[in-house]
Design a protein around this nucleic acid. Structure first.
Length: 250
RNA sequence: GGUGCCAUAGCUCAGUUGGUAGAGCAAUGGACUGAAAAUCCAUGUGUCCCUAGUUCGAUUCUUGGUGGCACCA
């Protein structure tokens, strides 16, 4: 049994993770490690319901507003960043708290992802160009050539997956599939997961009320200011993409 | 009160030159190891507002209602 414990607080949007997380952190005198893939972007405040100044002042938060929407970020990077942070945090207190709804991020920290090499941006551009010129079929052909095993296993309609497998295969100069299946990581801490739940109709009322508050706080201006960047991955986000469509008259 | 427009899936709407209807979103189930609040796959949904006509047949055309919106008074 490790002496260090990571409490992971999960649950659907709007259920009250932020507030409960702060109260737990105050109780354990711990920091909060955010595992929210969108609150990490400093430009996305209102629409992601990121903790406000007051909440941030109550407990030290990590990974809130520390990246820009123009930065490339990923679950794998989060795994590295979070683990190295936790090394330091556990020296101060053997209970730490992770709060947020991005399940792959949480999974990466708790169970680990395989050690797949990062893809340089020039290779991402190169693969994106294949997609632009030859479409999904072009990517599928590339995958069949570079990594026949993934070609058989992957959902070939899923552009994101096919693209990533191709990118990694090029960057690593060996098939993407060879990196998979080795993730038997043990972590130097225990994991206690707490999942929050409530009746759906009440949750929906809370979410509706919260959207009204967001609008009062200036959500429309926030989204308008980001409109020109609407094609960035980081802005493919609930609450933003719908408003982009609204501004387009859809 | 008058005139006009509208009423179709949970929501926004398309459509049927008259042969009982469909997209997007939502929902539900599933997949997913560096975009994960993402992405992909599958599935259903209906008194087509009510009424009476015309018609072999009306959600579609006509009459009269009801409700909503706009304009005029």
């Amino acid at each position: 049994m490790n002496k260090n414990t990571l409490i992971v607080l999960v649950g659907p949007t709007g259920i009250g993770k932020t507030e409960l997380g702060i109260r737990l952190a105050e109780h354990f005198n711990s920091d909060i490690i955010s595992s929210d893939s969108r609150q990490i972007f400093k430009e996305l405040k209102i629409g992601t319901a990121a903790p406000d100044e007051n909440e941030l002042s109550r407990v030290k938060h990590h990974f809130i507003g520390t990246k820009s929407i123009f930065d490339y970020y990923s679950a794998g990077q989060f795994e590295l960043d979070a683990l190295s942070l936790m090394d330091t945090l556990f020296e101060k207190n053997n209970v730490q708290l992770m709060v947020g709804g991005s399940m792959l991020y949480i999974d990466a920290v708790c169970n680990g992802l395989d050690n797949i090499p990062a893809v340089p941006s020039n290779i991402r551009d190169q693969v994106a160009e294949v997609y632009e010129k030859e479409g999904l079929v072009g990517l599928q052909n590339k995958l069949q050539e570079l990594d026949p095993e993934s070609y058989l296993k992957l959902d070939l309609n899923n552009k994101q997956r096919v693209m990533h497998a191709v990118e990694v295969s090029i960057a690593a100069e060996k098939p993407y599939s060879e990196f998979l299946g080795h993730n038997k990581y043990t972590r130097p801490f225990n994991v206690v997961k707490i999942g929050l739940d409530m009746p759906r109709d009440i949750l929906y009322e809370r979410i509706n009320a919260r959207v009204d508050i967001m609008v009062k706080e200036g959500l429309l201006d926030e989204v308008k200011g980001l409109y020109e960047h609407k094609n960035l991955n980081s802005l493919n986000t609930v609450g933003y993409k719908e408003l982009f469509k609204f501004f387009d008259g859809e």
